[in-house]
């Protein structure tokens, strides 16, 4: 029982969406649809408020929930000129670095455990899963101690390592499931046809596992992009902080420039939403792989 259920889930969802259409009475369909759109609106509403605030001139800040009279795009310019572009770059480097680390480390392990039986294989997979249980906050002191000994406080390398490490479990498991679902015979056939071991891997297996690889990578990227508490602990100088930490440092005793803060928040949010929209279905089937028969 592996991620082979990914295709069946998709197939079943198509079947199911055609199913109730014929049986439900019409009014009920309309009511359900209305309820669903209402729920969707409720979940989007706070974001609309945030985006509108990001576009509001400072003078109009104290009038909540109405459209701004003119859109203050300069709030976004302020973000850039205020030096936050450097923090955006840090966030990008940390997210990209963690993703590359996970790719280099998780891919061989997941492939090998999917293709070979060896002693300690199950123990290895369970060990990886158990690390999912330990949250960074619980061992914050240990993490801080380790990276200050290594001289990596205020460095993107420590954030890359921590974010990569805490996302390894998910990547190894989902990739393992994908590789296991690809029939070994396909690879062997290519091998016999003379592609060589690595040719078979790169021309047959990896392309077939591409959806799983992309999912694991985007998932890691988003998690590293969004991470807060470790970055808060391991970075001290403002210009070395990722966006999540830097934006929060503007909340203080004094008046908060909400419109500029929200312009920054929108910039910190849009990339992850786009990436997430790309893998949303796969994340769900990845997380439920192994639980739904």
């Amino acid at each position: 029982m592996t991620a082979t259920e990914t295709p069946p889930v998709a197939a079943a969802s198509r079947a199911a969406s055609a199913g109730p259409a014929r049986r439900l009475p019409r009014t009920r369909t309309v009511v359900v649809a209305a309820a669903a759109y209402l729920i969707a609106f409720l979940f989007l509403f706070p974001y609309l408020v945030m985006i509108l605030t990001a576009l509001r001139p400072q003078a109009e800040l104290r009038e909540p929930a109405y459209l701004p009279t003119d859109f203050a795009w300069e709030n976004f310019v302020n973000f850039w000129s205020g030096g936050l572009s450097g923090n955006l770059l840090i966030t990008l480097q940390v997210a990209a670095g963690s993703t590359i680390l996970v790719l280099l480390v998780a891919l061989p392990a997941a492939y090998y455990t999917a293709r070979h039986r060896f002693r300690g294989r199950t123990a290895f997979l369970i060990l990886v899963l158990v690390t999912q249980m330990f949250q960074p906050t619980a061992m914050l002191v240990g993490i801080y101690r380790e990276f200050s000994q290594l001289g990596l406080v205020d460095s993107i390398w420590s954030l890359i390592l921590v974010n990569g490490g805490f996302n390894l479990a998910f990547a190894v498991w989902i990739l393992n499931a994908y590789f296991s679902s690809i029939p070994r015979e396909l690879e062997e056939a290519a091998f016999i046809d003379g592609t060589g071991r690595f040719g078979a891997l790169f021309r047959i297996t990896l392309p077939l596992a591409a959806p799983g690889v992309v999912t694991a990578l985007i998932f890691t990227f988003i998690a590293a992009w969004n991470e807060f508490v470790v970055a808060l602990t391991l970075t001290t100088s403002p210009e070395q902080q990722p966006l999540t930490v830097r934006l929060n440092s503007f909340i203080g005793q004094y008046q908060v420039d909400w419109q500029n803060l929200f312009a920054g928040s929108v910039i910190a949010t849009v990339p992850v939403i786009i990436l997430f929209a790309l893998i949303e279905r796969k994340v769900v089937s990845g997380l439920t792989a192994g639980s739904i028969k």
Binding site: A36, Y37, I39, A40, F41, F43, L44, P46, Y47, V49, M50, T53, I222, W225, N226, F228, T244, V245, L247, N248, I251, W258, L261, F262, S265, A268, T269, V272, I273, L275, F276, A277, E280
Partner: peptide, 24 residues
């Protein structure tokens, strides 16, 4: 569409939605 819109809250950095809720 419904699925995508209710998923946005989950993808957004928690530290950012915290800011938004502080404002709300």
């Amino acid at each position: 569409l419904v699925r995508a819109s209710i998923l946005i809250p989950w993808a957004v950095p928690t530290a950012i939605s915290g800011l938004m809720w502080r404002w709300v």
